[in-house]
Amino acid sequence: MGNKTMTNQNMPPERLLELDDVHVHFPLREGLVKAVNGVSYHVNKGEVLGIVGESGSGKSITARAIMRLLPKRAAAPEGGITFRPRNGETYELSALGRNSRAMRQVRGQHIGMIFQEPMTALSPVHTIGAQIMRTVQLHMGLNRKAARERAIELLAKVQMPRPNQLVDAFPHQLSGGMRQRAMIALAISCNPSLLIADEPTTALDVTTEAQILELLKELQSEMGMAIIFITHNFGVVADIADRVSVMYLGKIVETATVDDIFYAAKHPYTQALLRSIPRLGVDQGRRLPTIPGMVPDPFSVPPGCAFNPRCTHAVAGICDTQVPPEKIFGSQMSRCHFADQFVAAEAAHV
């Protein structure tokens, strides 16, 4: 743990993770793709941060940058990523080598990660018990017997039926929902202080999704860990998140508490997205309000505010030339030149 530094003075005590102006660029044949283009956010201890965005927004790439799991062809990420799992123990993740001892320590012990496809995390040739045991033996220093007990305990914790038997099952013997549970058990096996969940319920049916969301909420309150929950589904984020960041084309356009995002959004993109979702039990009229045009391809991101060509509030000469600054309203941040005007509009509504 040679890269450990002394406590970062700038970080408030409740902070767990802080991203400061993170960039991830992919030099491709067709041009430079700025998949993550200046993202800053933080996660407090024990909170759930939801990250929402459409495909190509860079939401997953940012998470991979935290874990230093970017593909090799990505240019080295810029910006600072600070992680403090415990008081007095701070890691500058952005300064650690992707395969350094400290980074592996962080990945195994302090940050767990779950994916949309459980088989990205699970090995098909080992039983799920063996995989959990290996992790806890390595990072918690347990002996074989204790590790096995811990594995069974974890499987019970993620509400696997018959954990005593399923500990010896191979991933392919389990159903999709059960595999998801096994992957969660593996990710939380060392009591991480942060869990990164990258679209973990996208491939699941609604009833299974509800079960997994319920499980994650229970684990979160029981273990007190923080979660970064990445999804494109606003319903899921409304269900699980405390705070939400909305991403568009490699930038965070709005961050706020979950209630502010859903009831007092200050960015036109957030507002438009929320309007275009068909909601259960709500009559939205015959036509869904849409966002005109489509997400631009990553090689030709519009100048100024990246959303301006699709924005109904865009003002020529401002939005298409100047990159909007982060405007702060208490706990809410909006990257829109006219964010202040939405405050008035919203206030008028209530």
């Binding site: 009833t207 999704e209 079960q211 319903g235 009831y263 929320l274 259960l280």
Partner: peptide, 22 residues
């Protein structure tokens, strides 16, 4: 059960809604 399982883009409603997962 299917309708109850759908997560709604409505955090306040979710808090009051009784959801018993199947």
């Amino acid at each position: 059960a299917l309708m109850a399982a759908v997560p709604q883009p409505d955090p306040r409603g979710n808090r009051t809604r009784k959801r018993v997962p199947l």
